[in-house]
Simulated assay, not measured.
Amino acid sequence: MAEAFVRSDEHPACGICPSRRLPLGEFDVQDRPSDDCPFDPADGHRYTRSGVPVCVHPHKVGIPTGRYKSDGVPLTGELELPGDVAELESYLRGVLHSAAPGMLELLIEQAATEIPRAFPGVDVVTTLRRALG
């Protein structure tokens, strides 16, 4: 069996979250509880109507909403760099430190591409090191 996405008791994911028992891509993420993913009192988890496990707190697991298992949606992240270079490190620090492990590499790659476009002359490696430090 593949390793669960959340492997730490200190992680903010709920105790019953599918991320604690399933790998990334084996569950969907919705922005909140809804009738689309009813609670199953038999096991305490939420599922889509077709039986796919669902996390309803994307901010806790650090994964954007998506039908990862249901539709095979690939995990992607999208940076929205600030308009002012003075805010860049702070923005990146917040985004990168709250990113899910599976998202971190994607976001770093995207930052390495987007920073030079948005802020020519900024040293990308130094900026990312400071943001990750």
Rank of each mutant, 00 (worst) to 15 (best):
S34K: 11
R21F: 06
E87C: 13
V85S: 14
E89Y: 04
C37I: 06
D84A: 10
G102I: 01
T76F: 05
E87I: 09
R93M: 02
Y68E: 02
V61E: 04
G94H: 06
S50G: 09
V95L: 07
G83T: 14
G94K: 03
V95K: 03
P64S: 09
R49N: 12
S19H: 00
R21S: 13
Y68G: 03
S50P: 09
E87D: 15
H57F: 15
V85A: 15
F39H: 14
S34F: 10
D35Y: 10
D31W: 13
G94E: 00
P41D: 15
P82C: 02
G102V: 01
P33A: 12
G83L: 12
F27E: 07
R21C: 09
R32P: 01
A100N: 11
P64M: 06
D43M: 04
Q30P: 05
P82S: 10
E78G: 15
R93P: 13
V85Q: 14
H45N: 15
P23H: 03
S50D: 00
P101K: 02
Q30Y: 15
D40S: 08
L92R: 05
A42E: 01
T48M: 04
L22D: 04
S90I: 03
E87Y: 10
G102E: 04
L96H: 04
D71Q: 13
G44C: 02
S98F: 05
C55T: 10
V61W: 06
R49I: 03
R67W: 11
K69I: 01
D31K: 09
A99R: 03
F27I: 05
G44Y: 06
G66H: 04
Y91V: 00
S98M: 11
V54A: 06
F27K: 03
S34I: 14
G66L: 01
P58W: 09
S98D: 15
C37W: 10
R32W: 12
D35F: 14
A99Q: 07
H57V: 15
P64N: 10
G94S: 07
